[in-house]
Write a protein that binds this DNA or RNA. Structure first.
Lengths: 100, 100
DNA sequence: TCTATAATTCTAGATATATAAATATTTTTA
DNA sequence: TAAAAATATTTATATATCTAGAATTATAGA
């Protein structure tokens, strides 16, 4: 739980938006084709469409978010779903309150 | 109160440290020569000594922190004192809780 | 096994940030 | 008013981040 490393990830409008969108997938994304829920989050393609950036850029962003623990990937067939990691998100906010 | 802009400022170890040091000036800095309190914070020179970076770098960092509202400058003669802006710091943490 | 689809990784150019030396500004004091 | 001290600004270089296209990998289905 490194405040500086997580802050770097949050220092970008798109990545902050992704985190916000993942709070309410039903409201922000169309339903998936292969499954009828968002229990494991949202697939990369939908996040890409919503963000309006290239596929490689979004994939890179999601990797960065995953590397610091903000999101969790789950593979379903050829799709990767990403969901929020509430534990790390809350730990980060708590750490900020104590360490900045 | 822009989450992304404040996160950029926090995406640096030294700037996070400065914020932390300013929480307890008595514990982290020597007493000032011209005044006997830290009511307006700590002068640039002391922060520079503690951080171990060049004068221009620290001055640039403090300006960036001030620009997003995290710290407040007060001029006392030839010294500039910087103190934490608790209102903005708390507002940022609250905003994170609601927006990420 | 070949093909299509989804995602990741590699490569590269443009822009931003980190950092310090040099210079300028502000204020005090001799 | 000239020199000194503290800070800010300018300039410059090195490194990092942003972003996309191309190439690669993983998986499902024909």
């Amino acid at each position: 739980m490194d405040i500086v490393e997580i802050s770097k990830v949050l220092a970008n409008r798109t990545r902050v938006n992704v985190l916000k969108w993942l709070k309410d997938p039903e409201a922000n994304f169309p339903p998936h084709q292969d499954i009828d829920h968002f229990d494991d989050g949202v697939c990369v393609g939908y996040i890409q469409d919503k963000a309006g950036l290239s596929q490689s850029t979004i994939s890179t962003y999601l990797s960065a978010m995953q590397n610091v623990g903000l999101i969790i990937p789950t593979r379903h067939g050829k799709w990767t779903y990403y969901k929020r990691n509430e534990t790390v998100i809350q730990a980060y906010i708590r750490a900020l309150g104590e360490n900045i």
